[in-house]
């Protein structure tokens, strides 16, 4: 059992930050997000074999987190998606703050289906196959949505830069 705990702890360190970001954007409070993150790993412990048998444990964790968040949102009667974080990392230089604000705004305007996939791709660093596994979509759909998201993002950024 110790080996499994160590493996889960390693996954927690590796995928935890991305999962925390993914969850935090969907739940109201940090406490809720922490709770959901921990519940995700408890589920992983309870269904360890299933997670290992899945192609990618990270994708499996994202799928579980997504379901847990959806259940909590239903219970709380909220549908909240992605207020992108207000406080950027302190090490970001001031001149790039404007660029990041523009980026946040552009991402905030993406349709939900595209934003979620882009977040899994960039924030979670999941491959197309892992995103497809996590969301239960064909890889081709994931690919086309990523392309659309990138193009829309680029167009919005270009518009904002021209302004």
């Amino acid at each position: 059992m110790d080996g499994r705990v160590s493996e889960l702890e390693r996954l927690y360190r590796e995928a935890g930050p991305g999962l925390m970001r993914f969850i935090s954007r969907r739940l109201r409070t940090r406490e809720d997000a922490e709770d959901a993150l921990q519940a995700t790993f408890v589920e992983a412990a309870r269904h360890y074999e299933r997670m290992v048998e899945a192609g990618s444990p990270r994708a499996w964790l994202y799928a579980v987190a997504r379901n847990l968040v959806a259940a909590r949102q239903r219970r709380a009667g909220i549908v909240r998606w992605s207020v992108l974080p207000e406080d950027p990392p302190a090490k970001i230089a001031v001149d790039s703050d404007v660029r990041l604000d523009v980026m946040r705004d552009a991402m905030g305007r993406l349709p939900e289906s595209l934003r979620e996939i882009l977040e899994l791709r960039i924030g979670g660093d999941l491959s197309y196959q892992e995103i497809a596994d996590a969301l239960g979509l064909p890889v081709g759909t994931v690919r086309s949505r990523i392309h659309r998201a990138v193009e829309q993002l680029r167009t919005r950024l270009a518009c904002r830069t021209e302004e």
Partner: peptide, 15 residues
């Protein structure tokens, strides 16, 4: 930029 815009110190602090 998108990756940085998504990151957040508060969110990155794992419980």
């Amino acid at each position: 930029d998108a990756r940085t815009a998504m990151s957040n110190r508060a969110q990155d602090d794992l419980p």
